[in-house]
Structure formats: C-alpha cells, structure tokens
Design a protein around this nucleic acid. Structure first.
Length: 814
DNA sequence: TTTGGTGTGGTCTGGA
DNA sequence: TCCAGACCACACC
C-alpha cells in the first residue's frame, strides 16, 4: 500500500534486539498513523591512527566485552569517506544491533591506542535516523509499506519498505487540544484536582468537574479519579496531534500524573500506547506524551519569545493579552474552594477554567506556527523544539546539515572541557560609539544586514578553516589586530550552512513581497524566514558557547574583530564625506543629515558597500526628523544604548530608556514616554508642566497604586542573595504571609511610606496599602524625566518649580 | 544544559 | 553621614 503522511513526532523501540523507528503523524484524510521503519541501524564512527583497512581488521578480530563481561556484537564495519574536522578522509563506520550497544562499544574501544577519536556515539537514535535520511518533522512523506494489525490508538500502523520526503506546500489541519486544571491544596503537599477543561480547534469544549456545575459545557463527574479517566478518554477518542497547556510540564501534567498514580490509573496516552512520563531535567521537568505530542507553551515563551515580549511577567494572562488580545476571566478562588467544599454549583469556576483552555488554544494556534517552522528547519521534533534553547536549535541545524554534507559531527564536550572553556577570559565584543547628548534634527540610520552571519560567510569563519596550513601568509583573510587568518581555498562547513540560511532567508523575503500579507502562504513564509533568522543570528554565539560541539574561541573572536573593523571603516568613510556621526552600536550608524542630501547618502552607501566583501552589505534603514540622546548619569559623554527617534510619520522608536524597562513603575515609564514625545516635537514647555503636574498628583496622594508597581525578577533562591534588594525583601515578607515564592518569579512591589531603607519599605504589591510620594518623585519621576529635559536645557530647579521665573515656589532649597 | 559581549543605573554595604 | 565599590536586573545588539 501507499500513503502520504505529515510527520509530527518520532521515537524508537527495541524488539528482539532490533531497533524500530516509529514516526507519528497524520494523513491527508486526517487519520493518525504510526509508520515503522526497521531498516536503520545504529552506528558510530572510528577515526584510526593506522590505516582504515588495518583498523577494520583489528576491530573485527576483537572479542568485545563490556564492564559487566557481556559481549557486544558488531553487526558490520564499513569504510567510508567523510569530512572530519575539515579534512576529508576514510574512517570506519561501525554498526551494532541496538542503540544501547553503541554506548557499550564506545566505552570498550575508547582505550585502544590505534584510535584517535570516536564520533557520533552521543546522538539519540531517532535523531540520527532523521538527520541521516534528511527527514524533517512538520513536512510530508510518502510511504510504501503494509499495514500491521497492531494494537494502538492510531487509525493504522504501517511497516514501511520505503519512505521519501514529499514536496508539498500545504500544512494539514492539525488537531490541537488545549487543557487546564484547577486544583486545591488539601494537605501539606497534596494538590487535588477539582476540575479539568479541554478545548479543541475542532469545537470540543468540556469541563470535567468533581462536583455540581450547571455551566453549559460542564460534565460533572463523581470524583477526582473520574476527572482523570475522562481526560484520558478524551485524548484517546480525539487523537489530537498536539496536547497543549501553559506551564503544563511542571504543573498540570505533573499533578495529573501524581493523582493518576494514586488511583492506579494507567496513563497510556501516547499514540502507540506509551505511558505519560515526567522527565526530570535539572530544575525543571518535561511531560512526555509520544505521538499525541505534548507542548507546554510556557516553555517556548520562556526560552525563545521572552525577550521579544513586552509583558512584565510571563503569565498566561499577560502573554495571551499581548499576543492574541485575550484576557483571562476574573475568578474568586476562595469562593471556588468554598463552593467545592460545600457542594454548591461551580458554574463560575467551570467557566473560568474552560476559558483558560480556550485562550491557551488560541495562543497555541499562533505559537505552534513558530515551533513548526523551527522544527522543519532544525530537524527537531516539535516536542523538542518547543523546549529548546537557541544553542540547541543551532546545534540541531548543524547536525542535520552535517549528515547531508558528509561531515562527521564533533562530539559534545565533556564537563571538564566545558569548565576549561568557561574559565577563559571573555572575548572582546562589539564597538559602541559614544553618542552626542542632545536633541538632533534629521538623522539617517544605516545598518549592516545580518552583520555576524555575513562576516562568517564572507570571511569563511569556521572552527576548521582557522590558520590553515594551505594559505599561510595570505593576507587576504587576516583578522585585524590578531595573528589569525581563515582559509581562502576551502569553504568551511559553518560558513556553508550559514550562507544557506542567510541567502535562503533573503529569497523567502523576496517571495513574500509578491504575496498578500493576509494570505496563509505569506504567514507561513514569514515564520520560515524568522526561524532562519533566529538560527543564523545565534551561530556566532554558538561558536563561543562552552557547551558547543563546534566551539572555536578564535573564530568567535574573529567575528567580532571583523565587526569592529568594518564599523570603524564605515565611520571613517562617513566622516570623510562630511557627516556628523551621532551614534553607532555594533552594526548601526546614525548620521546627521542637514537637509535633503540624498546624493551624498547614496555616495556614502555606495562607497561603503564597495569595500565590503562577499555577502556583506550596509543598508539604509530610514530617516528620522528628530532624535534624542541623553548624558550619562555618572561620568562624561552621552549614554550608550539609550535613544529616542521620531520618524517622519510621527512614530517614536525608543531604545534603552526606562520606558522600555519593566523594573520601573508604569507612572514613570508613561510619563517619560510623553516627555520624550513632547521634547522630540519641540514642546519642552508642555513636557515641563506635565512633570510638574505628575509630581503634584503624587504629593496629593492621587495616584493609584497599580501604576506604581515595580517588577523585578527573583533570579535565584532567596537564600542565595548576598545583597537583599527591594524585590528580595518584598518577596521574603510575601513568603512569610503565605505566598508561594519560587526562583524565576517576577515580584511586583510598591515602595510604601515610613522610614528606613527602600528595601524595608518595599511591599509585595497585592498587600500594599499606600505609597511613598517622596520615593516616587525623587527616584522614579525625576531621574526618568530630568535627564531628558536636561538635554534640552531644563534644570532641576526649574522642574521642581524652584527657579526664579516661577515665583510661586521660589523658596530656598531647604 | 546558559548563543555571545556591552552598557546603564538603582540599591546595598561597609569603611572612613 | 558620605561615598566607592559590589551586587543586581535589565536593556541593546
């Protein structure tokens, strides 16, 4: 038979000493399918010091026993030609029967003196399968095979005789099931499940509640055990491609598992009947359901999206309202517990509970497109890519490409090696120009298109093109200020694959221009190009990352050195053409352009691009009618990484200022924003009166507490702090009051009236009853607005109403 | 198990 | 009471 299917997950099992890859997915008709492949064999590479033939014979003749004196059987040995650390050579590919044998084999042969290196023993078997075959998750495959009469939740199981990727643009309608639970702490460390809701993108809405509920989507069941059983039934009958939750790794599924264990419910909710497992990963855990893939949206938001969000905290409420414009419902938890205990109607709680699942579902529909694009690009299954860091994306992409390009993957560094790398002094980074403080008119902004990736490509920067013997003394590719150079003859692996990303991305962006922004095709391409940007931008960091397989300190150092060199050269060209260089950071340049001088700008752009090699390019970013830089608080000169620009349409672009920092109160942030807007529009008097008015409001106690909350993250356990700042003090007192405080939490607090240090008056926001006007005037409003107003000549006294012209307040300073 | 470095500025701490 | 330096969080790229 023949089928097409869309791959969403993969794992492997070992039956009768034979590994079988299982691919999970969905057919065009929407059936769920498991495709088995038992033709792939586990292997590792051995790089011998002696001839490969000799090494092959020697190893073949050995009897290999592991530390438990159990023999390891070698299935076969092949001599293959591969690129090892930049050099093409013949090596041994040794196959064993099971993936587990690979580990044992490696441990046995690692001491043999004719072996220089053993490779690719540390890659999960199903990943190696996907990489070697060039199979990407979240793409289509066509399969020949026959149906097995095997028991599973899938609509059918196929044993494949042939699997091929299939080019297809379409993405099938995947079924997403969002879920959420409400719990109650009934004992010291026991949380009981009161209700559980599910919502699917095919219209199912259900709340299973222990207790009475007349909510239209409620299905009251007799006890907690029944809630879990109904949830399980729901998964099995719905067969969702993705089961999504928010913080469901460490909360929902962890509790469901604990409670299921208590009632001896078998949570075999994988597509092939696999059990739900909670995998401990250091501090956190991951809840694994194979086939019906569990995605914890919070994990992806936390690891990948966090920096792009404005939300002060990463709660479902904040993230959903920022990304999809939906808020959670209000609920009174005390009432919920009370209703439950007294067996009253729990319809309000049920409505709240379901609503959480519904917004989780909507969020999933948005975020899963990102996760899918990253999976497709890097070869990680969505389960992994939704829980990956930037480093893991780069690594997986590189490993996938290595398999395609016959490159042997470097081993993951051992912990000793990692600590060695970490002990090195940090490498020198980018150049940041000191800005000219003040208000400037007519600013042209330029930046280098993908600076670091384009340097890697254009200068062939790779761990193994470094100081090559073949072009010693060739000045063409030397690094300014270092005795480093990179090969000009042989294209390195890293530059090759980064180029594919960079150029592939430009290609996609070009195609997008001819498409309707609202079309599905457009948004899919947008996700694809974004994934490529994410991975290519992280490559430089990966070269200098201690845990990297492709670590090369000198290469990372060279990337930044080239970057500094180019920005300096570009500044020199601008100055030679008579421009005032106002500012620049890493890859950007701000020039003052007195009038309409398009010609000179074009000359500048052309002159710079003339000296740029390869795919490097300086781009014109845009024109701004005014821009502001402020002085540093301490020291001299303008403050770097802080500026505000006003474009010709009146839109402001604010960087670095307190306005964009969550550790400042909304009052200060919002006031600063308006002040910036007014100052950039030459209305400084209005700005001054706004600040004065704000100060009066504060003094008069007219400001609501909400806008005075300051958010700070607790980056470690409270006990680990040597210096207890306001957020730590507030957290300590909140904990005493019974609030659950965990590392990573963002603490909201307000500085209240009283005497003593600021910390001693920092109160966890929900508990705060008043605020200290002096603190908010002197430590929030003044610093954030004064430095801006000073840039246009307003003094502190003037702002405080103490200058001569405002006679009304012309008292002495004391 | 965390892609890298550069930079600002608040608060605390301890010594003068 | 003042101040420098350490600590800390969060931004930019």
């Amino acid at each position: 038979m023949h089928i097409d299917f869309f791959l969403t997950d993969a794992d492997y099992i070992v039956i009768d000493n034979k590994p079988v890859i299982r691919l999970f997915g969905k057919t065009e008709k929407g059936e769920s399918v498991i495709v088995k492949d038992d033709l792939f064999k586990p292997y590792l590479y051995v790089i011998p010091i002696i001839s490969v033939k000799e090494a092959k014979k020697t190893i073949s003749d050995l009897e290999l026993f592991d530390k438990n004196n159990v023999q390891v059987i070698i299935d076969s040995i092949e001599i293959v030609k591969k690129e090892v650390d930049g050099k093409s050579q013949e090596i041994l590919k040794i196959f064993t029967q099971t993936p587990n044998d690979i580990q044992r084999l490696k441990d046995i042969i690692k001491g043999l003196d004719f072996i220089t290196s053993i490779r690719e023993f540390d890659i999960a078997f199903h990943k190696q399968y996907l990489f070697d075959n060039g199979f990407s998750p979240m793409t289509w495959f066509s399969v020949d095979g026959h149906i097995l009469g095997e028991d599973s939740y899938a609509d059918f199981v196929v044993i494949a005789s042939n699997i091929k990727p299939k080019i297809s643009k379409s993405i099938p309608k995947l079924k997403i099931m969002a879920f959420d639970i409400e719990t109650m702490q009934t004992k010291e460390d026991i949380k009981e499940i009161l209700m559980l809701s599910v919502a699917t993108n095919t219209g199912l809405k259900k709340v299973f509640s222990h207790g009475k509920s007349t909510f239209e989507h409620s299905e009251p069941v007799k006890d907690e055990k029944a809630i879990i059983e109904r949830f399980k039934e729901c998964i099995i009958t719905e067969k969702p491609d993705f089961i999504v939750g928010y913080n469901s790794d460490s909360f929902d599924f962890t509790i469901i598992k604990e409670r299921a264990d208590k009632y001896r419910i078998r949570l075999d909710i994988g597509m092939a009947g696999q059990l739900l497992t909670i995998q401990k990963r250091g501090m956190t855990s991951a809840a694994i359901t194979k086939g019906f893939v569990h995605i914890d949206l919070y994990q992806f938001v936390f690891r990948i999206m966090r920096t792009t969000l404005k939300s002060e905290t990463l709660t479902l409420d904040n993230v959903a309202s920022e990304l999809i414009g939906e808020k959670k419902l209000d609920v009174d938890f005390d009432k919920m517990y009370d209703d439950w205990k007294n067996k009253r109607d729990m319809k309000d709680s049920a409505r709240y509970n379901l609503h959480d699942s519904v917004i989780t579902l909507k969020l999933a529909e948005k975020i899963l497109t990102n996760i899918s694009a990253l999976s497709k690009l890097t070869g990680l299954v969505p389960f992994d890519s939704s829980r990956s860091t930037y480093g893991q994306f780069v690594e997986s992409f590189a490993m996938k490409k290595a398999a395609q390009l016959d490159v042997v993957i470097p081993n993951r560094p051992l912990s000793d090696e990692i600590s060695n790398r970490m002990e090195q002094a940090p490498i020198e980074g980018a150049f940041v120009a000191t800005p000219r403080a003040g208000l400037h008119k007519n600013i042209a902004v330029f930046d280098f298109r993908s600076l670091y990736p384009s340097i890697i490509v254009s200068h062939n920067i790779d761990p193994f093109t470094f100081n090559c013997s073949c072009c010693k003394g060739n000045p063409k590719n030397k690094v300014h200020g270092f005795s480093y150079s990179f090969c000009t003859k042989k294209h390195g692996f890293v530059p090759t694959i980064v180029e594919e990303l960079v150029m592939g991305r430009y290609d996609i962006k070009k195609r997008m221009k001819s498409l309707d922004i609202l079309s599905e095709e457009y948004s899919r391409l947008d996700m694809d190009q974004y994934a490529m940007k994410t991975v290519s931008n992280a490559f430089y960091g990966y070269l200098g990352f201690a845990g990297s397989r492709w670590y090369k300190r000198e290469s990372a150092e060279s990337v930044t050195a080239f970057g500094r060199d180019y920005i300096h050269k570009t500044i020199a060209i601008a100055e030679n053409l008579g421009f005032d260089v106002l500012y620049g950071d890493t890859d950007s340049l701000f020039l003052r352009t007195d009038k309409n001088i398009d010609d000179i700008l074009n000359t500048f752009l052309r002159d710079v691009n003339k000296i740029l090699p390869g795919i490097m390019e300086l781009e014109y970013e845009g024109h701004f009618k005014s821009g502001l830089f402020v002085s540093k608080k301490t020291g001299t000169g303008g403050a770097k990484k802080k500026y505000a620009l006003l474009d010709d349409k009146g839109n402001m672009k604010i960087r670095g200022f307190e306005k964009v920092r969550r550790d400042w109160s909304h009052l200060a942030r919002n006031t600063q924003e308006v002040v910036l807007q007014l100052v950039l529009s030459d209305k400084k008097d209005e700005a001054v009166s706004l600040v004065k008015k704000t100060i009066l409001n504060l003094k008069g106690g007219k400001v609501d507490l909400e806008s005075l909350i300051i958010f700070n993250q607790l980056t470690r356990a409270i006990e680990k702090y040597t210096q207890k700042g306001p957020h730590v003090s507030a957290a300590i007192r909140a904990r005493v009051a019974g609030i659950d405080i965990v590392p990573g939490m963002v603490i909201p607090y307000i500085i209240t009236k009283g005497s003593g240090s600021i910390s001693s008056r920092a109160v966890y926001a929900p508990f705060a009853k008043n605020y200290d006007p002096d603190y908010y005037i002197n430590k929030q409003i003044m610093p954030t607005t004064l430095r801006i107003l000073e840039a246009v000549g307003v003094s502190e006294d003037e702002l405080l109403g103490k200058s001569k012209q405002s006679g009304l307040f012309s008292f002495s300073k004391k």
